[in-house]
């Protein structure tokens, strides 16, 4: 196992900065996801790690080795492409063997590795087929297998599930995580799908406008987002501007917001300071003595009901397990102080 680190990476295209001073560390055996909207620089960052793009500034290290100027074919990385990128003229077996032949491994070693990976990925019956004779899920498994047989220090995934239907996506997602753990691989995974990132990752780097906004565990990102962008991108939080008015308990402050007074835990409070708050819709609880809100829209989702509500003309969402509230009804709710997060920066 080997780790990856980057220091001050910058990449520009025609004067537009796609990656802006990005620094990170990925520990050996860690599964890290680069998450962000289209154009945030996540694929550009992945291409720099794989060697297909040379950064304008900064450096990349694989373990102790500086690989910033090392060409892709000489890097101890393997990339799984969004389009699978299988060689259309080669059988599954030949696709799997391709990299091993470049490494000039012996025939026995090639066969051993290919059979091991084919067995793990349940590709044995497909070995003599051509890629165009395989389903999308099978092609993705071949793509994954082709990377795995190389036993790379770091495996890179560029939105590998985006061409699969929902059912296959779940299957391959579980497979990727299992294989990454079993083979003890360091993995960097690119996606714009936050549920995929939350389900797979040890840590997520949320990217916005070429920068890493927050690098944290999925739980920390979800429950303790640092910025409005992260709060909104991961799970869709309610974000409000407010002012600290009074301390209500040790470490807890009342915050005057457009929808009423909320209580939040604040680390370094300053009376009168303006803050941005966020909370998750599902942390709201219906309570007779809570804040009032008018139901604008109701959507029953099975195990919860999603309510679009408004207070003083400010719209937001709450999700409750069971309610009879209908459009136009007034409800009351409260949010526990530990669920109200003070953000470092607004949206």
């Amino acid at each position: 196992m080997i780790g990856v680190s980057a220091n001050g990476l910058v990449m520009r295209f025609d004067g537009v900065t796609a990656v802006d001073d990005v620094t990170f560390d990925v520990a050996p055996g860690e599964f890290v996801t680069l998450l962000g909207p289209s154009g945030c620089g996540k694929t550009t960052l992945l291409k720099m790690i794989s060697g297909f793009l040379q950064p304008h500034a900064g450096s990349i290290r694989l373990g102790d080795e500086d690989i910033t100027r090392v060409p892709p074919e000489a890097r101890d990385t393997a990339l799984c492409f969004q389009s699978y990128a299988l060689f259309p003229h080669l059988s599954v077996r030949e696709n799997l063997e391709f990299g091993l032949r470049q490494k000039r491994l012996s025939r026995d070693e090639r066969r051993r590795r290919v059979e091991e990976v084919a067995s793990t990925l349940e590709l044995d019956p497909q070995m003599d087929k051509l890629p165009n004779q395989l389903s999308g899920g099978q092609q993705q498994r071949v793509s994954l297998g082709r990377a795995l047989v190389m036993r790379p220090g770091v495996i890179l995934f560029d939105e590998p599930l985006s061409n699969l239907d929902a059912r296959l996506r779940d299957q391959v997602r579980i497979l990727i995580r299992r294989v990454q753990r079993d083979f003890g691989l360091t993995a960097i995974y690119v996606t714009h799908d936050q549920s995929e990132a939350l389900a797979l990752s040890d840590r997520i780097f949320v990217m916005n406008a070429g920068r890493v906004e927050q690098a944290d565990t999925p739980e920390a990102l979800y429950y303790r987002p640092r910025t409005g962008f992260v709060a909104d991108f991961i799970g869709g939080a309610n974000i409000l501007r407010g002012r600290l008015t009074a301390q209500t308990a040790p470490g807890e402050w009342a915050v005057d917001t457009p929808i009423g007074v909320l209580t939040a835990r604040v680390d370094a409070p300053r009376r009168g300071a303006e803050v941005h708050l966020c909370w998750r819709p599902e942390t709201a609880e219906l309570a007779a003595d809570g804040l009032p809100a008018q139901v604008l829209h109701r959507a029953f989702q099975g195990h919860f009901t999603d309510l679009a509500v408004a207070t003083n003309g400010v719209p937001y969402r709450i999700q409750v397990p069971r309610t009879q509230a209908r459009e136009g009804d007034e409800i009351r709710f409260r949010i526990a102080p530990e669920h109200v997060v003070v953000l470092e920066a607004g949206p």
């Binding site: 060697g51 297909f52 000489a74 990339l79 492409f81 990128a85 299988l86 060689f87 470049q102």
Partner: peptide
């Protein structure tokens, strides 16, 4: 496709090998 050529390079094929094999 670019991805196919990039995949070959990523798997260790130099320029001449990419030509011969892909």
């Amino acid at each position: 496709s670019d991805d196919v050529l990039n995949a070959a390079q990523d798997l260790g094929a130099g320029a001449w090998q990419r030509f011969l094999t892909v």
